[in-house]
Simulated assay, not measured.
Amino acid sequence: MPVLVEVVPAARACRYFVTYAAIGLPFRLIGPIEGEQALNRNTFIRAWFDDGERLIGFDKLVHADVELSHRYFYDEDGALLSALVTMAGEAPVRVTLPEIGAE
């Protein structure tokens, strides 16, 4: 499965989800599923978390192609600093505070 943006090196755990809620950043992932279940779905989210269980990135896969990719960057206190957002066929866009808005 291709990845639009490389995984953040701090990733410690990869988990799978059915979908997400797109209200502010970082997105809230919904409906955790096991890896085997993801293989039986046309659309799913593959997400990475750091040691503090913060979401540091995800890929939305549709028919095995990455359609949307987010990578999140936090400060030492855990506050979101910026996000790198990539949609299939488009150049990555970095969103920084205060553009991020409410979390």
Rank of each mutant, 00 (worst) to 15 (best):
L25S: 14
I33Y: 10
R46N: 03
R46D: 03
F44C: 07
E36S: 08
R28D: 03
R15T: 01
N40M: 10
E36K: 01
R41S: 10
R15E: 06
G35M: 08
T19L: 01
T43H: 09
L25G: 12
I30Y: 02
F44R: 04
G31W: 04
A21R: 14
L39K: 12
R28C: 07
F17P: 02
R28P: 00
F44E: 08
F27K: 09
R46Q: 12
G24L: 02
N40F: 11
V18S: 05
A21S: 14
Y16V: 00
I30T: 13
T19E: 05
L39P: 00
V18E: 10
P32L: 07
V18P: 02
G35K: 08
I45W: 02
E34P: 00
F27H: 11
Y20Q: 14
R15L: 10
Y20L: 15
T43K: 11
A47Y: 05
A47C: 10
F17K: 04
A22V: 00
P26R: 04
P26N: 05
A47V: 01
I33S: 07
G24C: 03
R28L: 09
F27V: 07
N40V: 01
G35W: 04
Q37N: 05
R46W: 03
A47P: 01
I45Q: 06
N42M: 12
P32I: 11
I30A: 08
L29M: 06
A22M: 12
A38S: 13
G35I: 02
L25V: 00
V18H: 05
P32N: 08
G35T: 02
L29V: 07
A38Q: 06
W48Q: 13
I23T: 09
N40Q: 14
G24V: 00
Y16R: 01
I33E: 08
L25A: 11
A22I: 00
R46M: 06
A47M: 11
E34D: 11
T19S: 14
N40A: 14
I23P: 01
L29G: 03
R28I: 06
A38H: 06
I23V: 07
I23K: 12
T19F: 00
A22E: 14
R46C: 02
L29Q: 04
L39N: 10
L29A: 10
F27G: 04
R41H: 11
N42A: 15
R46V: 00
F44M: 08
Y16A: 05
G24H: 05
F27L: 08
